[in-house]
């Protein structure tokens, strides 16, 4: 995040829109970098197989993985985003919007990423391919999140309701898919 103001050179403050985009892109990268290791190590050393053989409920494992991934890649960004927004643009009127939309969007990123990270378990090349496949599914969330953040009045608006709807469907639906995929990958 600190790179963005430096990259823009001699301007004292960034435009508000640019600073919002910078925060969202940083969120995205933080998420994608951590996503690669979500199930990778457990799959490689056989822990996942061990869970399945011992009939540990996989849903619990998946929820725990998602929660820890969110705690490490989502929560820090939510906490420092208002500060960063002020540092970037010298403007803190829309902090509430930024906070709410990031709070709604980062769990969705994690939840969407988890089945895709599970899908890529058996493949030989990783990293770049995972990023490439995950990005189109993140795009709608980013679009609505940025739209929600850019709103000038501080009312809670339609974009937040939409993100909330996606989150409440996704929190049930995506771990379910992940469990199905993990079972398919192991067997």
């Amino acid at each position: 995040m600190i790179i963005f103001p430096l990259a823009f050179g001699n301007n004292q403050y960034l435009e508000l829109n640019v600073s919002i985009s910078a925060i969202w892109i940083s969120t995205l990268f933080a998420n994608l970098i951590a996503l690669d290791h979500m199930y990778k190590e457990d799959y490689d050393d056989g822990t996942l197989l061990y869970y399945i053989v011992n009939r540990v409920p996989l849903v619990t494992i998946v929820y725990a993985k998602c929660l820890s991934h969110w705690l490490f890649s989502g929560l820090p960004i939510i906490l420092i985003a208002p500060l960063c927004s002020y540092i970037f643009s010298g403007y803190n009127e829309n902090n509430l919007n930024l906070f709410i939309s990031l709070t709604l969007a980062t769990p969705i990123f994690t939840l969407i990423g988890s089945p895709i990270a599970a899908l890529m378990l058996g493949s030989s090349s990783r990293g770049a391919a995972l990023t490439f496949i995950t990005l189109p599914f993140y795009l709608p969330i980013i679009i609505f999140g940025v739209m929600g953040t850019n709103i000038n009045n501080s009312n809670i608006n339609a974009e937040f309701y939409l993100l909330l709807a996606i989150l409440s469907i996704g929190i049930i639906f995506f771990p379910m898919i992940t469990v199905k995929i993990l079972k398919g990958m192991i067997n």
Binding site: L119, M120, R126, F132, I181, M185
Partner: peptide, 15 residues
Amino acid sequence: FIDKTFKYNANGDLS
């Protein structure tokens, strides 16, 4: 991409 990365791997069909 997913077809290319899982070349000749049975997991690729599922993914």
